[in-house]
């Protein structure tokens, strides 16, 4: 019986699948980028003024954090390829810590806005006019969806780290790590676009 259903493994196939999935993810955010462009065009002044209220400092810190975390996950692939299991796990741990740091920053950033009664559905925000409502609506929705992707990515990386510990992922079979890396880079890439759109273009 076991000869009938042989386990097949083809790493290139897995990676092709991941790349196709990334296309879907890009288009998912693409819809939001279109909505952003339309409303930015129509409410140029309000978007300009609202963007100045965001903390460029925290945004920059978070960008640097994500860029470093992409480096660490890429390095862990090299480490596993060189059979350096401990170093690979260490690098993945570092990636997780950096991802959590990003979320903590985001938490404080959102918290500040909430204190000033800036959140979707807030009546005080509504008083400031349509442009501000749309800017912050898009801001919370897009960074929120991005943060959700970060959380999913962190769960993946955690699972991968445990699998390395249990030798399920090793120097012969590390395509799952590579795929998680691809996903993490995409999440990073989307942030690279979110950062200027909300923080820098003022």
């Amino acid at each position: 019986m076991s000869t009938i259903l042989v386990k097949h493994r083809d790493d290139l196939t897995s990676k092709t699948g991941m790349w196709f999935f990334l296309f879907t993810e890009l288009l998912l955010f693409g819809g939001l980028f279109i909505v952003y462009s339309v409303y930015r065009y129509r409410n140029a002044t309000a978007f300009h003024l609202a963007a100045q209220e965001l903390s460029v400092f925290i945004g920059t810190i978070n960008t640097i954090i994500l860029l470093i975390s992409s480096t660490t996950i890429a390095m862990s692939i090299t480490a596993i390829r060189k059979q350096n299991k401990k170093f690979a796990i260490l690098l993945l741990g570092l990636t997780i810590i950096l991802g959590l740091a990003f979320l903590v920053n985001k938490y404080f950033e959102w918290g500040e806005h909430f204190k000033e009664h800036i959140y979707p559905g807030s009546s005080i925000l509504a008083l400031r006019g349509h442009g501000d409502v749309l800017f912050y609506g898009l801001y919370f929705f897009m960074t929120g969806l991005h943060a959700l992707h970060i959380i999913i990515g962190l769960i993946f990386i955690l699972v991968i780290a445990v699998s390395i510990l249990r030798n399920k992922i090793n120097s012969d079979n590390y395509v799952l790590l590579e795929n998680s890396g691809l996903y993490w880079h995409l999440v990073d890439l989307i942030w690279i676009f979110l950062f200027p759109l909300f923080y820098l273009i003022t």
Binding site: T24, E25, L27, L28, F29, G30, G31, L32, V35, Y39, N43, P120, G121, A126, G129, H130, G131, V133, L134, G137, L138, F140, F141, L145
Partner: peptide, 26 residues
């Protein structure tokens, strides 16, 4: 994915009153 995100926006609109497509909110 385009309809995926659009439906999510409708859900956000209904639950969080974000104002993506509501003329009353711009």
């Amino acid at each position: 994915p385009i309809i995926g995100i659009t439906l999510l926006m409708i859900i956000a609109e209904k639950t969080l009153h974000i104002g993506f497509f509501d003329p009353a909110l711009g």
